[in-house]
């Protein structure tokens, strides 16, 4: 079976700083993979490399058997690779309904239509609304995004990504800035997503990671230190040393 997402020897330096050094991994379809590592390890950079927002110096990226290493970012999205942002990157003056409908329309290739009415795209609007509802955003989806509570904006990050109907979804600290009490609930929502969807999520809270991940990648200083099941990672001395020992419970 082909992997949903495959990275082979990704390299990236900023000047003399190696932020990605020979990164290779494979995500089988439906995997719930956590990417952990201390601050500055290069986790966000890895997502930027995978999605094409940064160009790697070397390496290969394969999505569902297709080499997308050279595809521009927007095309990777259309091929089924979506992401969310660690720091909210939304449309402040659009309401969530508009924003999500926009994402749906982009996916369906309907945004070239400049004479039809948006509201007449009932299928797209309803699909957007269903996504928002599944993330419990239906109540606030008529207000401007900038008026939404922070936690709701985090959910909207996910809603926009889901509207692209991804096969692989990369979540960059979805619970960043969300109070610890609420992050469990947020991950419950994430965990409830389709089992066909392959997930890679970055998360610092080890309780959450061990609860929701089926596999864990550990990254330190731009390199993958190791990967394994939650049990293997929990018992690895090196992980305890470099990660759990220092930044794990900061």
């Amino acid at each position: 079976m082909t992997a949903a997402l495959l990275a082979k020897g990704l390299d990236k330096r900023f000047g003399s700083l190696v932020v990605a050094g020979g990164i290779s991994f494979e995500l089988p379809v439906g995997e719930r993979c956590a990417l952990i590592g201390p601050n500055g390890a290069g986790k966000t950079t890895l997502i930027n490399l995978l999605t094409g927002m940064l160009t790697p110096d070397a390496g290969e990226i394969v999505l569902n058997g297709e080499d997308i290493s050279r595809a521009p970012p927007a095309r990777r999205v259309r091929k089924g690779l979506a992401r969310t942002f660690q720091i909210n990157s939304l449309f402040p003056k659009l309401n969530p309904l508009e924003a999500t409908t926009l994402a749906v329309c982009e996916r369906r290739g309907e945004t070239g239509d400049f004479l039809g009415r948006l509201a007449a795209r009932r299928d797209a609007v309803d699909e957007a609304y269903d996504i928002l509802k599944s993330l419990r955003l239906d109540g606030v989806c008529r207000r401007e995004t900038r008026e939404l509570a922070y936690g709701q904006q985090r959910l909207l990050e996910i809603a926009l990504a889901l509207a692209t109907q991804p096969k692989v979804l990369l979540l960059d600290e979805p619970a960043a800035g969300v109070p610890k009490e609420d992050s469990g609930e947020l991950f419950q929502v994430i965990d409830g997503l389709s089992r066909q969807l392959t997930l890679l999520f970055i998360e610092h809270d080890m309780d959450v990671v061990f609860r929701f991940a089926s596999r864990i990648l550990v990254m330190v200083g731009g390199r993958l230190l190791l990967e394994g099941t939650p049990a293997e990672i929990a018992n690895d001395a090196r992980v305890r040393e470099v990660y759990l020992g220092s930044a794990g419970h900061g």
């Binding site: 927002m53 942002f85 990157s89 939304l90 449309f91 402040p92 003056k93 659009l94 508009e98 924003a99 409908t101 926009l102 329309c105 982009e106 309907e110 945004t111 070239g112 239509d113 400049f114 004479l115 039809g116 009415r117 948006l118 795209r121 797209a124 926009l160």
Partner: peptide, 16 residues
């Protein structure tokens, strides 16, 4: 139109 919405999207956040 859907196109108009896309333009507003670009204005609001072209990276997104």
């Amino acid at each position: 139109s859907p196109f108009g919405l896309a333009l507003r999207g670009i204005r609001e956040n072209s990276t997104r």
